Simulated assay, not measured.
Amino acid sequence: MSEIKTLVLNHKQIQQKITRIAYEIYERNVGEGEVVFAGISGMGYVLAGLLVDKIKEISPLKVEKMKITLDKFTKKQPEVELSHDIDFENKCLIIVDDVLNSGRTLTYAMEPFLKYEIKKIEVAVLVNRSHKLFPVSADYTGYELATTLSENIQVELNESDSTVYLQ
């Protein structure tokens, strides 16, 4: 038996969501010296790159991108790694992931940043499933989608044919 996949967002719609999120980020951070985008490995990191590119296109904000590497599928996180060290002092940090489900992954992703004097931490996601089990919510959301716990969201981001499917 094959799994039924329902198209939730097509490439054009995803590009529109990314543009809208980028403008929201710019509007809320127009006075910041620098905004650091920390994308969670996988599609979160790809989304962070797309947001950085769009913000560079629409604004004079100074932006930097880094990767957060962790295991999204384990309940006990062994170690969260950052792609490189930077000076976070007095900067805005935006943690980016493709899908916000329970908040567990984003909670783990914040851990390495707690030792820095960051001005503020915000969260950007493409799809928010709203199954909140951890005290994490998205500051920037591309699409809100009510799903059952047994359903999965599949995000594929690339230059020519990005899609979001519910399966």
Rank of each mutant, 00 (worst) to 15 (best):
Asp139Ala: 10
Gly44Ile: 05
Leu133Cys: 09
Ile18Thr: 12
Gln13Asn: 10
Tyr165Thr: 01
Leu47Trp: 00
Glu57Thr: 11
His131Glu: 10
Asp53His: 11
His131Ser: 14
Met1Lys: 14
Thr69Cys: 03
Glu81Ala: 13
Met66Trp: 04
Ile94Gln: 11
Ser83Tyr: 08
Ile86Ser: 09
Ser162Pro: 07
Phe134Cys: 08
Lys67Pro: 06
Leu82Gln: 09
Phe113Ala: 12
Asp97Arg: 05
Ile25Ser: 02
Leu47His: 03
Leu166Tyr: 05
Phe73Glu: 13
Val46Met: 10
Asn158Gly: 02
Ser162Asp: 00
Leu145Ser: 09
Ile68Gln: 02
Lys72Tyr: 06
Asp98Glu: 11
Leu100Ile: 04
Val30Arg: 14
Ala138Tyr: 07
Ser83Ala: 09
Leu145Glu: 10
Thr19Asp: 14
Val30Cys: 06
Glu89Tyr: 06
Gly142Gln: 02
Gly142Tyr: 00
Pro78Phe: 09
Ile25His: 01
Val36Tyr: 13
Asp161Gln: 08
Pro60Met: 05
Arg20Asn: 15
Glu151His: 04
Leu100Ala: 05
Lys54Gly: 03
Phe88Lys: 06
Lys76Ile: 14
Ile118Trp: 01
Thr19Val: 06
Thr6Trp: 05
Glu3His: 12
Ala109Gln: 07
Gln13Glu: 15
Cys92Gln: 12
Ile118Asp: 00
Gly42Trp: 10
Val52Trp: 01
Lys76Ala: 06
Ile4Ala: 07
Leu145Phe: 02
Pro135Arg: 06
Ala124Ile: 08
Glu159Gln: 14
Gln16His: 08
Asn128Ser: 12
Tyr26Trp: 11
Asp71His: 15
Asn152Glu: 14
Tyr116Glu: 14
Gly44Asp: 10
Val125Thr: 07
Met110Ile: 12
Ile55Asp: 09
Thr74Lys: 15
Leu82Glu: 11
Ile118Gln: 00
Met1Thr: 12
Glu3Cys: 04
Leu114Thr: 12
Asn101Gln: 10
Glu64Pro: 03
Asn29Lys: 06
Val36His: 09
Ile95Met: 07
Val30Met: 08
Thr141Lys: 04
Lys132Glu: 10
Asp97Val: 05
Glu89Ala: 13
Ala48Glu: 02
Val80Glu: 04
Leu114Glu: 11
Val125Leu: 05
Gln77Ile: 15
Val164Trp: 01
Gly44Trp: 03
Ile55Ser: 07
Leu47Asp: 00
Gln13Leu: 11
Pro135Met: 04
Glu156Asp: 12
Cys92Pro: 01
Ala48Asn: 08
Val46Gly: 01
Ile68Phe: 10
Leu145Val: 08
Thr163Asp: 01
Tyr165His: 13
Asp87Lys: 06
Lys56Trp: 02
Asn128Lys: 11
Glu122Asp: 09
Ile153Val: 15
Ile153Lys: 02
Asp161Ser: 11
Tyr26Leu: 08
Gln167Leu: 13
Ser83Met: 08
Tyr165Ser: 00
Glu159Gly: 01
Tyr26Met: 09
Ile58Trp: 09
Ala109Thr: 03
Tyr108Val: 07
Gly39Arg: 00
Val96Met: 02
Tyr108Gly: 00
Thr107Ile: 03
